[in-house]
Design a protein around this nucleic acid. Sequence first.
DNA 1: CTGAAAGCGCTTACAG
DNA 2: CTGAAAGCGCTTACAG
Lengths: 342, 342
Amino acid sequence: MAADDRPTDRRPHRRPTINDVAAASGVSRGTVSRVLTGEGYVSKDAREAVLRAVRKIGYVANRHARGLATQRSQTVAFVLSEPQHRLFEDPNFSILLRECTQELAAHDIMLVLTVAGTEADRKRVSRFVSEGGVDGTLLVSDRAGTSLVDELLGTGTPLVVCGRPLDDSREIAYVSADDRDGARRMTQHLRGSGRERIATIAGPQDTPGGRERLSGFRDVLGEVDERMIAVGDYSRASGEEQMLRLLERAPGLDAVFVASDLMAAGALDALHRSGRRVPEDVAVGGFDDSAAAERCDPPLTTIRQPWSRISKEMVRLLLGMINGESPAGMILPTTLVERASV
Amino acid sequence: MAADDRPTDRRPHRRPTINDVAAASGVSRGTVSRVLTGEGYVSKDAREAVLRAVRKIGYVANRHARGLATQRSQTVAFVLSEPQHRLFEDPNFSILLRECTQELAAHDIMLVLTVAGTEADRKRVSRFVSEGGVDGTLLVSDRAGTSLVDELLGTGTPLVVCGRPLDDSREIAYVSADDRDGARRMTQHLRGSGRERIATIAGPQDTPGGRERLSGFRDVLGEVDERMIAVGDYSRASGEEQMLRLLERAPGLDAVFVASDLMAAGALDALHRSGRRVPEDVAVGGFDDSAAAERCDPPLTTIRQPWSRISKEMVRLLLGMINGESPAGMILPTTLVERASV
DNA sequence: CTGAAAGCGCTTACAG
DNA sequence: CTGAAAGCGCTTACAG
């Protein structure tokens, strides 16, 4: 490559440092730092001179230098341990991410998202955290049982999990919707609408949500015929599939509680195809109140998770832990959203 | 809060440093660093002693210290400047993200994602980049005209944009599918199927893709009746809406090239509702080959963008620039995917 | 209110 | 092949 093949200003021109600011404003480095961090007393004159110099030379503090000196990165990781496609399917993640970003921004903390779908990803993420890249991490995962939680915990950095950890033997901070109570509510609602043969399509039984929602269902109905219980994997396709199985095993069912809206959408397809009218022949209750719920035909009666509140509490807990507080678990109430499927 | 309210090991126990490793392995700090970075010569004995010590005391290098010394963060940002919901709607982003993560991982570089939907977000992201938080950034945005590009460019850190920048007056690196040629291909395909009254629902005209695809359409048809041209905003709803407008203005149309699959899905709804059969009465061609394309009824004939290749080239360009190479633009070919809607 | 100095934990020529 | 030392760019007691 010829020398003049490279454009004029490609050479890595030196960024201004705090020394440049000090020189330009006629004060010491210490004083510059004090006005920038807002710590300690600085005279009005000095402050103004510094600020002017900063603006003039376009100074921005070096993140590594600051991090090294303060032992803080002012950054928090939002890690998604789900296989990636789920992130993009589930609108809940979107809300969670937005809310957490805003909440942290209010504390002048940067939020970076990392995806840890594969084992290699997980390794990289926990190394990133160990290295002090972030002050804490928010973990979003249904499979809280994976090694990631352990690795993250092992780094010694504060961790808050979204959703109830499967293994609660350790002292781990989390925020979760009250899945069990939500499931109870919906089941009661179905029964309250006069239904008597209520089935369920539960979520995966290796996830806390999957288990809790099934427990809630059982809480209300007591002893239930096992043929009325099917288990899906939260995907739309599995909702369809399991609905067909239920119809085969219990053609007379008149209601079904489906543990996620996405599966419920699949179940609706199956019901339509089998000639059932919803809600006339079969009532359908979902869970999540995702965007898909409204678009269903008929619009889905479902359980809303308080995502906004969940995000806020996650951030609050994490910031607390970063400042030395001990971890805690929080369970937040859900609400029933009535539409037309029951 | 009582003193014993805090659990036993909450105090921020000091992390081992390179000095601890040096002490434990009986060599100097310099030597430890050499084995860790892989630079310079180190005797086999020394290397093994160091590695043993590292493992024993669980040493992980401090990211800030290393970053300060090397002036590199070994991290790249993946910034999404779209309003967030789009990320979660568009499966293309998912692919792009996964591929970029993998590609960078091969170079031992961490990828962090940040969302810059609001103006405040954009400010925070560019500050993050200015501070040296990352060595370069991959920007995913259709509205490459926003201030974000300028701000990012202004930081002096390497930047590669996904999609062709609207304003190409600056020397900016980008990778894009050949939108114009893709649109040409599809239009030709529609004409090749015997259609004679071909309309289009274009994308937003303030996006490069929106413009290019319309240009491609025009390239093939030459002078076209402006009533055959509608403009949507890439959303499903707008596809439906614009299709209805087209049908009103040109009831005799027998084909429509829709600039995105999502809009095409909306257009299909409108066509069905108006009693048109697809493809018998009206042929529909999409763009993107998103997951939705296959699920359409009928499955959508569309243009596939080479996302995997795009990701690879973006990373390659970025790493090159980080190492001093000059920016470049790349345009990659698309392919026609035939399904049942034409 | 402010300067001088030590320190954060690494890397990297430079001698040897 | 390896140690001693300087340096990366900040922050923060400590004097004054």
